[in-house]
Write a protein that binds this DNA or RNA. Structure first.
Length: 867
RNA sequence: GCCCGAGUGGCGGAAUGGCAGACGCGGAGGUCUCAAAAACCUUUAUCCUCUGGAUGUGUGGGUUCAACUCCCACCUCGGGCACCA
């Protein structure tokens, strides 16, 4: 037999698989889902449980890169492995094809976004096929196809009808480079997530999805996601940012300092510190500020601070130590707990879009308020002190305010005892403390306060002033207001002839936006904004379950049968954006009545990046290793196995050419060894025989090697199975290498002295175990070397007997006081007493006749003798 | 500041509390060859007074018969959030 040649066998089998439709999922007969197994998975009448593997679909910007190869190889291994284990596996692929890069590329190439996008999709599709991924190509979803975005518009309208869509004016993030607004999640370090330009804040009327209505559930359900990495859940929890506390209403005084009927409400997490509130703060852009100061002596200074705040970019405001600027407005509010009249200031450290835009300042308990008070000479009375604090003894029973200032260098925001706090003095204060609760209770009797929860999460801004996206199906009518496009008129088709090279958008196209009102028939204007591309990627995994449906985005019975996704695989960069939005979509569509589960992805694997010399590969750095070039030299199987072998999947991987050659050698050895096990000899290009027999081997030695091989056979099947279950692909490949090393010793035995049945069994196991990772060579060996019928990928995963993985004789380490002093070989069935006496015997020279205090026996591993 | 992760040979990395360094890369030596490549075999944590012994998983403590693994404190690196009241 000739040596391994990937370039002959890889195209050959890819063609065979395509013609056999080997990768298409058996469409579940959803009407006849008969039972659910113990894990809750649905089963079809053929009794195969469903398994849905999904990898994050690519954005078609150029050809596939190493990150894709890694992502999709992991998914492919899981899919093939699960299929061999008897699951009905859904493993689809598609393209997330709307978005800015297509517009930029079109401008650069004097073309259209569609031309560029679809050319890249074709290129990527070919590459994915060349990589041998087992996708069900009949289920491809492309988000820029009208038969997909149609249903995105339909879902938009369903959410609108349910009150989850809102058009409102609010301060939003504007990217001056991309010429569009951005969602909060798309602002990274104060810059645009795509082009890094510093974003500007603008007050604009835009479309929002009310994701905040699900803030609590999105947070709570993170606890259900046992199959998600802790770090992703933590990031989402941080982003949602739940704070418990209270809303407290302060009565506003008029310009003569007399109480009015109006109140201003603040949010605080520390109602227990209310007695220490000595001033009150409004955000510079707070709507009340202008009315307070206009025409007064305070107007000039307030105006100066407002201008100072608005000129600071988001980047500056979010970096480093900030000098706190403020100005007195001339007005006062009444502290509801003690009737104190406290001055209203404005300050740039108060954010209009968190809480109520107003803050009760407690300088002794909050570092920012403390700094502000020091700068402007405001009082800092202590109200919660630690028992260890020097002030504790002095103030512990003091109810009225005696001490108006502290000598502390900084505020104390920990828990402690309430002092100078009237009837609450002596109570435990702190976040969510009894004292805090008592203050809330007291205020709530007079309706001046109530317990409440605040979230950091903002509503999702989904409108974009860009052409290459899904048109928002809304119409503005002078008489009827904003009305949805009727379902029967969907999809609102994105015209293909908008010339982005001339800066055109939908807003430059009267033939697009001039429409009749669907309600009253009057002349009306169609919305020309498109949806954020993340709306498209928030439900594509649902469409895969029913991709050709012409009357619904998906049939509920199909989506409910397949979903949730059993295993989702993708990059950590989507920890917040895509994964949070998808969770929101799932919950919202559940409430619309389209599906019956709460979370879209049961298990999540966030794969690490592929780097070169510790740096991210990028075109601009010129350090890209193209998968195509690797495939040309080593073939697809070597690339796949290499990328799995070099690091655990969730860790970053540093590319090394030497490592790859090692894997290529391994695959060549598999080839030779499988043929050798069948008794056939592999020859190299010059016809030299590559098998070397060791003629010194006698029958006893052959028997010994056979026993060893049988043991490794059982042990390695067990190990590979367990490792793939845990996604430890690197160690599962190591285990196959170990089996191969044992095989190498076995095939030194001249053919006439071998156990043919054992050899055949081992050869089959090698091929079956490696098949999910190196599908082409294994298919070739299965049919050509082993002469088996049918595809290796449709075989059952090999079984093993744990009992046979154990040697008859085992070597134990013998420790004395935890240090290894000797080794003994005992029968694996030896009793503990036998093991003990053998162990004691072996260390006699070290311990003499000293009595052992204690002997610990770990079966088949070691013995520890304590003297 | 708050919250997560991670620190193991020359390198990538293995180890349910039970023989640290599996497996691979790289290195050294050898077989085959006129020679080389390929292949195969042996060897490869560090140190020492070297048929043996000591040390060793970021640092310092602790729990345990036994700790890379568990606990406490700290250091370094990576990531998320952050004038969030």
């Amino acid at each position: 037999m000739q040596q391994y040649d990937p370039f002959k066998i890889e195209p050959k089998w890819q063609e065979v698989w395509r013609d056999l439709h080997i990768d298409s999922v058996t469409e579940p007969d959803v009407g006849s889902v008969v039972e659910t197994d113990s894990s809750g998975s649905a089963k079809t009448t053929n009794n195969k449980p469903f398994y849905y593997t999904l990898e994050m679909f690519p954005y078609p910007s150029g050809d596939v890169h190493m990150g894709h190869v890694r992502n999709y190889t992991i998914g492919d291994v899981v899919s093939r492995y699960k299929r061999m284990q008897g699951y009905n596996v859904l493993h689809p692929i598609g393209w997330d094809s709307f978005g800015m890069p297509a517009e930029n590329a079109a401008i650069k190439q004097n073309s259209t976004p569609a031309t560029w996008t679809y050319a890249n999709i074709d290129k990527q599709r070919e590459s994915l096929k060349r990589l041998g991924f087992s996708y069900d190509w009949n289920r491809t979803v492309i988000t820029s196809d009208a038969n997909y975005y149609h249903w995105g518009q339909w879902i938009f309208i369903k959410l609108w009808q349910r009150g989850l869509v809102e058009r409102k004016s609010s301060p939003v993030n504007w990217c001056p480079t991309c010429q569009t607004v951005l969602a909060n999640e798309q602002v990274i370090d104060g810059g645009c997530w795509r082009c890094h330009t510093a974003v500007e804040r603008k007050e604009l009327e835009q479309w929002f999805f009310k994701i905040t209505e699900y803030a609590q559930e999105l947070l709570d359900d993170l606890d259900k996601l046992d199959g998600w990495p802790e770090r992703v859940k933590q990031m989402q929890a941080n982003w949602i940012g739940r704070s418990t506390g209270a809303e407290i209403a302060f009565t506003l005084c008029d310009d003569n300092g007399e109480p009015t009927n109006e109140t201003i409400t603040v949010f605080t997490t520390r109602p227990d510190t209310l007695f220490g509130c000595t001033f009150f703060l409004l955000a510079p852009e707070h709507p009340l500020v202008e009315g307070f100061v206009s025409g007064t002596e305070y107007a000039a200074e307030v105006d100066r601070v407002v201008k100072l705040a608005s000129s600071a970019s988001a980047v500056e405001r979010s970096k480093g130590e900030r000098e706190k600027n403020g100005a007195f407005t001339g007005r006062y509010v009444i502290n509801p707990i003690n009737g104190d009249k406290v001055p209203i200031w404005i300050s740039d450290y108060v954010m209009m879009d968190y809480g109520t835009g107003a803050v009760m300042a407690v300088p002794s308990g909050d570092q920012r308020d403390f700094e502000f008070a020091r700068k402007y000479g405001l009082a800092i009375p202590p109200v919660v002190v630690s028992k260890d604090d020097a002030l504790f003894e002095e103030l512990k029973n003091v109810q009225e305010r005696k001490l108006n200032d502290v000598t502390w260098a900084e505020a104390y925001d920990g828990s402690g005892i309430m002092v100078q706090s009237g009837e609450f003095t002596g109570m435990q204060g702190g976040k969510d403390s009894p004292g805090a609760q008592a203050v809330i209770d007291k205020l709530s009797t007079s309706k001046q306060g109530q317990a409440t929860v605040n979230f950091r999460l903002r509503d999702w801004l989904i409108s974009r002033q860009r052409y290459w996206g899904n048109p928002i199906p809304a119409i503005y009518c002078k008489h009827c207001g904003i009305v949805p496009v009727p379902e029967s008129d969907l999809p609102v088709v994105l015209p293909m002839d908008v010339d982005v090279t001339k800066g055109e958008t939908l807003a430059s196209r009267p033939d697009f936006y001039e429409v009749k009102c669907p309600v009253c028939g009057a002349d009306a204007r169609r919305e020309t904004d498109t949806m954020d591309t993340f709306t498209c990627s928030s439900w594509y995994y649902l469409r895969y379950t029913d991709p050709h449906n012409k009357s619904l985005p998906f049939a509920p019975e199909k989506v409910n049968a397949w979903m949730p996704v059993d295993q989702y695989i993708g990059g950590i960069e989507h920890a917040i954006l895509h994964l949070l939005y998808s969770r929101f979509f799932t919950k919202a569509l559940r409430d619309v009545g389209l599906l019956n589960f709460d979370e879209p992805f049961t298990n999540l694997l966030t794969q690490g990046m592929v780097k070169l010399h510790g740096e991210v590969m990028s075109k601009s750095k010129g350090n890209v290793i193209a998968p195509e070039d690797i495939i040309k030299s080593y073939g697809v199987d070597a690339l796949r196995v290499y990328i799995l072998f070099m690091a655990p999947p969730d860790k970053d991987l540093d590319w090394s050419q030497e490592g790859l050659e090692g894997i290529f050698r391994f695959i060549n050895r598999i080839w030779r060894s499988v043929y050798d096990l069948t008794g056939e000899t592999v020859v190299d290009g010059e016809g030299t025989q590559l098998s070397v027999y060791d003629l010194k081997i006698d029958n006893a030695e052959a028997k010994k090697r056979g026993e060893e091989l049988n043991r490794e056979y059982h042990r390695v099947i067990g190990k590979v199975t367990a490792d793939i279950d845990r996604f430890n692909f690197n160690t599962s490949i190591s285990a196959i290498m170990e089996l191969l090393n044992t095989v190498s010793a076995y095939i030194k035995i001249p053919v006439s002295m071998r156990d043919d049945q054992l050899a055949e069994r081992v050869a089959q196991a090698l091929v079956l175990l490696l098949a999910p990772m190196a599908p082409h060579i294994c298919e070739e060996l299965w049919s050509e070397a082993l002469g088996m019928e049918g595809s290796v990928h449709l075989q059952n995963w090999p079984e093993f007997d744990p009992a046979q993985a154990i040697a008859g004789q085992v070597e134990l380490a013998v420790q004395v006081n935890g240090k290894i002093k000797a080794r003994v070989t005992v029968s694996s069935e030896a009793s503990e007493a036998e093991v003990q006496s053998a162990a004691l015997e072996s260390v006699h020279e070290f311990i003499g006749d000293t009595q052992a205090k204690k002997v610990v026996v770990v079966p088949k591993k070691l013995v520890n003798i304590v003297v």
